[in-house]
Nucleic acid binder design. Structure first.
Lengths: 339, 339
DNA sequence: CTGAAAGCGCTTACAG
DNA sequence: CTGAAAGCGCTTACAG
């Protein structure tokens, strides 16, 4: 089943068959129709390896990540591959598992497979993979990753989303808004603190306490509930907490509930990530920030294809619009704006 | 940077260069070494599209799934791509999102990209995608999916793992072991019920109540905690619950805790899935069954490559060995056996 | 509007 | 042990 077969079936040359199938060049409508019908009737399917060889284009891109198919790469990969699929390009998936040797082999393999482009995804905006010297340069975009100078990157808007989360808590009348988050060596944690501070400052308030760094875990949230809700004098306790991720938020809510503290009555909570299966199952369900990772993957892919097509794409880092998802942990159905 | 360049650099013909690089044919060691050094020094990287075109082998497989990168496909994909990577084959990722048109296009794309084989993954063992008629046959293995007659499939061992879960509860002296699980139209739920019943029967016990079908959610577990732990007379209440997944288990534990029922003191719990981030954060941490999805993906991939290599692979369904992961919800550190 | 020919980068009989 | 040549399935100048 090669193009030779359709040429024979349609009684034209392979050159004409090729042009008819691809819609290139000028030709009699009758001829084009005849060739296409022939192709259809014999079940012809073009061989992309052959096409790629001559066109120097494989209609294939690679997604290389060091997040072993984790929670963040997941939606990014989904958005990316949807968008790519719609434009007829396939995506290779490769995880480097933070292993430098594997990383090198992965990039080499991508080169050998002649990918048209690469999206390099990470789970941290302050770490990044870079193309090894030995691999010839390939159009690349970075996602959820450090973005080398002059490169094109797509990251969540940690500062903006954190500000919006805090503003939501302010908008429902809370004034003593604490912030519990992950490890300080994560840039994401520092950015979220920055957004929280900015919103408080804008409202003329100061932070009731420094941001509480720790781990990205339920245990951290739980422990801090014990600490924040039992030690201080009642009127010094926070009336709201902006949590650095949904796990911390859930841990805090569970811990607070156990202490008999009402959520959202006594303390309103906003999480971060909108990890559905977590956020929806919390009691009460969690109001949280959605970073728009699906769209992040989609946008990154579309830009990559633009580069591959030779269109000029402005270098630099883009920040993805976020969205607040209102559930029950702030006790209001008011929908806040997005970036 | 083509093989022509290395041939020139090593002062041999392209035929010799090819053989030296691939280690095929006989040749003087000196020649082989000289060619390889030349290749290395000019940074030669073979073009797999060209190689594939002549060898009729792309060293590429496709993973097509209708689980949009969900929890189950994730570990399967990770295991698969690790194993494939080690053998120098790349994997295309495609999600069909339960969309028949997309499904067709996906399989067509896989054919056009000349994949050597396909692993078709699902999130339910009782549903399956099949290769459309219009696509020429490609070596295929099925994972977590219905397995057509005569095909090769790799599924978790739902019955065995459920039996082992129940046996673990029996081994710590529990006798009134309830079972709360997902929707009855899931074969996985029915298999797990079967394993639970088998273990009880083997121990000469009968089920304290019929299996409680519902949804795969925390809410279901929570609701059943209220029901099971408040309505019956105390001595008729279960002293253990085998839950159909970790979410149900967590909901049950949270619900029971709220009622003042001690876990594992009053009721011991075993979950199913070993969804780490859930199971480890439950209070107490969840003892649960691990279906071995990572190895499932790996095995499926290796078998697929065997088929591609022309080795004979026995058709039929394989059941993956499972493993019980002991945490705190049964109050014992005893490690149970595996299949 | 259509075809014959060259060529993409490789591998592999076929000779020697 | 090594090389010249054909060919994988396509596309694309180049002619006509």
């Amino acid at each position: 089943m090669t193009i030779r077969d359709v040429a024979a079936a349609a009684e034209v040359s392979v050159a004409t068959a090729s042009r008819a199938i691809n819609g290139t060049g000028r030709m009699a409508d009758e001829t084009r129709v005849r060739v296409r019908e022939a192709a259809l009737s014999i079940g012809y399917r073009p061989n992309m390896m052959a096409r790629g060889l001559v066109q120097k284009r494989s209609f294939t891109i690679g997604l290389v990540t060091n997040d072993t198919y984790g929670r963040f790469t997941l939606p990014v990969a989904a958005g990316l591959s949807q968008a790519m699929h719609d434009r007829g390009v396939s995506v290779f998936l490769a995880s480097t598992q933070d292993n430098p040797a594997l990383e090198l082999r992965t990039f080499e393999a991508m080169e050998e497979k002649c990918v048209d482009g690469l999206v390099v995804a990470n789970r941290r905006v302050d770490r990044g993979l870079t193309l090894p010297e030995t691999v010839k340069s390939i159009p690349t975009v970075y996602v959820m990753s450090a973005c080398p100078d002059g490169a094109i990157g797509f990251n969540p808007d940690d500062v903006g989303a954190a500000r919006a989360a805090t503003e939501h808590l302010l908008s429902i009348g809370r004034t003593r808004i604490a912030h519990i988050t992950g490890p300080k060596d994560f840039a994401a944690a520092r950015y979220r603190e920055e957004g929280w501070r900015a919103a408080l400052a804008e409202a003329g308030l100061s932070a009731p306490a420094p941001a509480i760094y720790g781990t990205w875990s339920e245990a951290h949230g739980w422990d801090m509930a014990q600490q924040l809700l039992t030690t201080a004098a009642p009127d010094k306790r926070p009336d709201a907490v902006f949590c650095g991720n949904d796990q911390i938020a859930r841990g805090f809510i569970d811990g607070a509930t156990r202490l008999g503290v009402g959520i959202p009555g006594d303390v309103a909570i906003v999480g971060f990530d909108n990890w559905e299966i977590f956020a929806a199952a919390t009691r009460p369900p969690l109001t949280t920030m959605d970073m728009g990772l699906l769209d992040l993957g989609r946008s990154a892919g579309l830009s990559l294809l633009d580069i591959v097509d030779g269109k000029r794409v402005e270098p630099g880092l883009r920040h993805q619009p976020y969205r607040i998802v209102i559930r029950g942990s702030c006790g209001t159905a008011k929908t806040a704006g997005t970036a």
